[in-house]
Design a protein around this nucleic acid. Structure first.
Lengths: 160, 160
DNA sequence: CGGCATTTGTTGCATATGCAACCATCCCCG
DNA sequence: CGGGGATGGTTGCATATGCAACAAATGCCG
C-alpha cells in the first residue's frame, strides 16, 4: 500500500518530518519533568502537614521575606491572586499567619507568620533542603548543573 | 532586638541556613518554567482548535504511533487514565478518532485517528514544531543544550 | 469446572483552579 | 470637592482533576 497524494493515510508517521516526536518535544518534557519532581515533593508536605501547593508556597515566601502583602506573595510565588487569597485564608484558619490592615491604605493587608507558623516553616524548609539534596544527588553533578543553566535560560525569556 | 534561644522571631531569615531561598529551589524553578512554557503553547492549540492539554497529548500520540489502546496512550503521555478516558471521549465526539473493540479481548479498545483527525494532527504538529523552534531560538544554543541535558537527567530518575 | 485476582476502561464525588465580576479604597485631576 | 480610573483583595461559577469505586472481561490455578 502506498500513500496517495492528497489522500493521507491514518498510519503512524513516527519520524516523518510532518509529524512530531512527542517524547523529544521540549514543552512536553519540561512539564513531565516538573510534574514528576513536584508530585514527589508535594507528597512530603501534604503527608506531614496536609498543606496544598499554594499554601506551601505562601508559607515559604512569608518565611523567607517576613511581612508581605498578598500581591507581593503572588508575584514572587508565580501564583494567581485567587490562589493566594485562598491559601492565605486557609493558613489563617490554622493560625499560622496573621493579617494586619495597613494604617494608611486600608486596601492593603500585611501578612505575617505567627510563631507557630514560623516553627512549621522551619520544619518544612528543612524538609525542602533535604529533598533538593536527594534530587541533586540523583541528577549527578553534571545533570544538576545542566538543569540549572537550562532553567536559567528559560527564566530569561519574557516573550515568545 | 536579638533573637532568643528557643524563642525564634517571626522576622525574615533570607539567606539563613535554617530557611529556604525559594527562587533557587529546584522544584519551584522547574514547575514555574514548565508552566510558563506550557501555558504559551497551550494557548496556541486552544485558540486554534479549542483543544485541552489531555486532548492535544492524546492526538499527538495517536498521530505519532497510529492505533493505540487507552492504557498505552496514558503511559506514553504520562496521563492518568481518567484524563485519557475523557480526552478520548471528547475527541470521539469531534469525530477525530474511532474506537474498535478488540476481537480476542473485549476489554481492549483500539483507538485510531480518522482522516479528519489526522489532518488536524498534522496541522497541530506544524504548530508545535514552530513553537519549539521559537523557544529554542529564545533559549540560545547553549541554553537549549543545557536544558536538554538537564531534562535527560531528570528523566533518568525513577525514584527519590 | 469455578471462584478469585487482575486488567481495561468509565463514572461519581470532592477538591482545585481560573476567569470575571465584584466590593472597598485610594489616587489623580479637572 | 468629586467622579473616573486604578489597585488590593474576595467570591460566584464553570471547568478540570484525582481518587476511589465500579462494571465488564479475562486469566490463573486449585
Amino acid at each position: 500500500m502506498t500513500v496517495q497524494k492528497g489522500q493521507p493515510s491514518t498510519a503512524p508517521r513516527d519520524g516523518r518530518d510532518d509529524g512530531l516526536a512527542l517524547e523529544s518535544f521540549l514543552p512536553f518534557r519540561l512539564v513531565r519533568a516538573a510534574e514528576q519532581v513536584s508530585r514527589r515533593f508535594a507528597a512530603l508536605y501534604r503527608d506531614r502537614h496536609g498543606l496544598t501547593r499554594p499554601e506551601w508556597r505562601t508559607l515559604a515566601n512569608l518565611g523567607q521575606h517576613g511581612r508581605m502583602t498578598a500581591t507581593a506573595i503572588g508575584a514572587r510565588a508565580a501564583m494567581h491572586k485567587t490562589k493566594v487569597s485562598r491559601a492565605v485564608a486557609s493558613l489563617e484558619r490554622r493560625k499560622w499567619i496573621e493579617r494586619t490592615t495597613d494604617g494608611r491604605d486600608r486596601r492593603i493587608e500585611h501578612i505575617e507568620l505567627t510563631p507557630e507558623g514560623r516553627r512549621n516553616y522551619l520544619d518544612l524548609a528543612e524538609l525542602a533542603r533535604g529533598f533538593e539534596a536527594r534530587l541533586t544527588a540523583e541528577l549527578g553533578p553534571a545533570g544538576a548543573a545542566a538543569l540549572d543553566r537550562g532553567l536559567t535560560a528559560v527564566e530569561a525569556i519574557d516573550q515568545l
